[in-house]
Computed example of a mutant assay.
Amino acid sequence: MIRIRALHKYYGDNHILRGIDLDVKQGEFLVILGPSGAGKSTLLRCINGLVQADAGELQAVGFDAMDTRQYRNLRQQVAMIFQHHNVMLRLSVLKNVLTGRLGQMSVFASICQWFSTADVELAMDCLRRVELDHKAHARTDALSGGQRQRVGIARALAQKPKVILADEPVASLDPKTSRMVLHYLRAACDELGITVICNLHQVDYAREFGDRIVGLSGGKLVFDGTSDELRDSALNLIYSGTTFPQILPVTAETNTSTELLVQGVAS
């Protein structure tokens, strides 16, 4: 599905990605952990061509993500969910979701926003998946932050992608809403077979939702394993020597305190 070898990215003299090697399987929910500046967002943007890597090999859904000529076809198969929603507030919820179909339409049809009946039915089904179909005709600026992020997920699903890249999708949300958003992404992975790569700061969410977790630090991949393998020694590598207390299983009682601890370390 995704194959990355010796990937490097520079911004001027700043070496952001330093030889990343990573494979992601179809239908996998992969969480990327790491402090701010570790290269998490840059890696996602390289995968869908929003940023072009400087060296290495990057194959995604059958396309060469190092070749700008393949970007249009690549982006039809790889959807992106951003931290700050990136929805159009003055449009209705349904219209926002329908924009996920623009990449599959002709230039003329997309300019005129001529959506087919099938597209509208698909968009409504995507809204039902995130439990927002009752808000289809509401203006998006009337929604809460969590609801706007769910619109972003529905828009990504309307694209009918093979991969969803989620760049810190719950960073600005409260714990209850965060878990709801991650639940919808997890369902897309389990029920539709969509590969999900999700950048997170919260260790407890990574352990709860991820099939597999990788850790970035200083632009290098320093951990690759399951949630059970994400112990103190691995966290110390990811978060540059920070000492963590014993990691407790996620429960209703421990979740809030654990989350606050991790958010404090990651900030």
Rank of each mutant, 00 (worst) to 15 (best):
G100R: 06
D54L: 10
D67Q: 04
A109M: 05
D67T: 04
V78G: 04
N86Y: 12
L98S: 02
V120W: 00
S106F: 00
V51G: 00
L91Q: 15
F108S: 12
D125G: 04
F63A: 03
S110P: 08
R101L: 05
L58M: 13
E57D: 15
T117H: 01
L58W: 14
Y71S: 00
V97Y: 10
V120N: 00
F108D: 03
Q52I: 12
M80I: 13
I81T: 08
V97E: 02
S92I: 13
M124Q: 10
W114D: 02
L50N: 09
G100A: 02
A65Q: 04
H85N: 10
L102C: 13
M88T: 13
V107T: 14
T68G: 02
M66W: 03
V120L: 07
R69G: 05
D64C: 02
L91F: 15
R72N: 08
L94C: 02
L127C: 01
L102K: 08
H84E: 14
A109N: 09
N96E: 02
R72V: 14
S116Y: 00
C126G: 02
D67A: 09
L50K: 09
E121I: 02
V61Y: 13
A118L: 09
R128T: 04
A55D: 12
F115Y: 14
M88K: 09
A53I: 11
D64M: 03
V93D: 03
D54Y: 06
W114Y: 09
I81C: 11
E57G: 04
